[in-house]
Computed example of a mutant assay.
Amino acid sequence: MQIEHLSSDYRVSLLSKKDVPKIYQLYQGNPLYFEHMKTQPTLENTEEDLIILPPGKQKQDKFFVGFWEKEELIAVLDLIAAYPNAHTAFIGLFMVAKEEQGKQTGSKIICQLLKHLKQEGFSTARLAYVKTNPQSEHFWKKNGFVLNGEEKDQGDYTVALMEKML
């Protein structure tokens, strides 16, 4: 996947260990997300996000990318190609910097992402959000995702799955 084409408005790059402090800073600006996950961001779990994979997926299937405006990290996206099937791209995490929220930045990035995924040959985008997080549900519905009826117990919280046909 050519990640540089994920956005025409922002510079996009694969994130690595050297970016962990900037990712962690972005995470800290989103305490509500972590409240629903019943955890807090740490440097350790931030670094873990760079490598964690769903069952059966390989390192080459994961794209943990940052969206940059000049030198500022304004959003992060964890994208898993061909999961849970060959025609689906899974959004494992999408988070926008606090300063960019309410400016349509997130919706603009998702719109461009979905167009690119379709060009890459995917027919569906899928994600899971924490059921107790109405802000997340609202964002994804606003961007055309619909509940597919599946829920998964994650121990401390339950996620609801959503999909969008591309």
Rank of each mutant, 00 (worst) to 15 (best):
A97Y: 00
T39K: 11
T46H: 10
P21R: 03
L73E: 06
V20N: 08
I91T: 11
N85W: 10
V65D: 05
L77T: 01
A81R: 13
K57Y: 01
T88D: 05
P41W: 01
F64C: 07
E47R: 06
E47T: 02
E48D: 13
E47Q: 14
L77R: 03
I23N: 09
A86Y: 10
P84C: 06
F64I: 01
N30R: 08
G66A: 09
Y83C: 04
I74H: 08
E100R: 13
K62M: 15
Q40G: 05
I80Y: 15
K57C: 09
F90K: 01
K38M: 08
P31K: 01
P41L: 03
T46I: 09
K22T: 08
E69V: 00
Y33F: 13
N30K: 03
T88F: 13
I91K: 03
L50N: 11
V65Y: 04
I80E: 06
F67S: 00
M95Q: 11
Q25G: 07
D61Y: 07
M95K: 11
Y33T: 07
A86D: 13
K70D: 15
L43D: 03
K22P: 03
K62L: 15
I51E: 12
D49Y: 01
I52L: 09
T39M: 12
K59F: 05
W68A: 00
Q101T: 14
L77C: 07
L32G: 05
M95Y: 05
L32V: 14
L43C: 04
E69F: 03
M95G: 12
E48F: 14
F67W: 04
L50P: 09
A81L: 15
G56N: 11
Q58V: 05
E44Y: 00
Y24D: 08
L73D: 06
K70H: 14
G56C: 02
L79R: 09
P41T: 04
K98T: 06
T39N: 08
G92P: 08
K70A: 14
L93E: 13
D61S: 14
G29A: 12
V65I: 07
H36M: 04
I52A: 13
E35Q: 13
H87C: 02
T42L: 02
T88E: 11
Q58H: 10
N45V: 02
E100N: 12
G29T: 05
N85T: 07
A89S: 15
A82M: 01
F90M: 10
E35A: 05
T88K: 09
M95D: 05
Q25M: 02
L26R: 02
Y24W: 12
Q58A: 10
Q60H: 15
V65N: 07
L73H: 06
T39S: 11
F64H: 04
G29D: 03
N85I: 00
D49E: 13
E44N: 03
E48G: 05
Q40M: 12
Y24Q: 09
T39Q: 07
E48Y: 10
A81N: 14
P55V: 10
T88I: 04
N45L: 08
Q25S: 15
Q58E: 09
E99V: 09
V76L: 08
Q25I: 00
D49G: 12
Q58F: 09
V76A: 07
Y83V: 01
V20G: 10
L26S: 09
V76E: 11
D49H: 13
G29C: 01
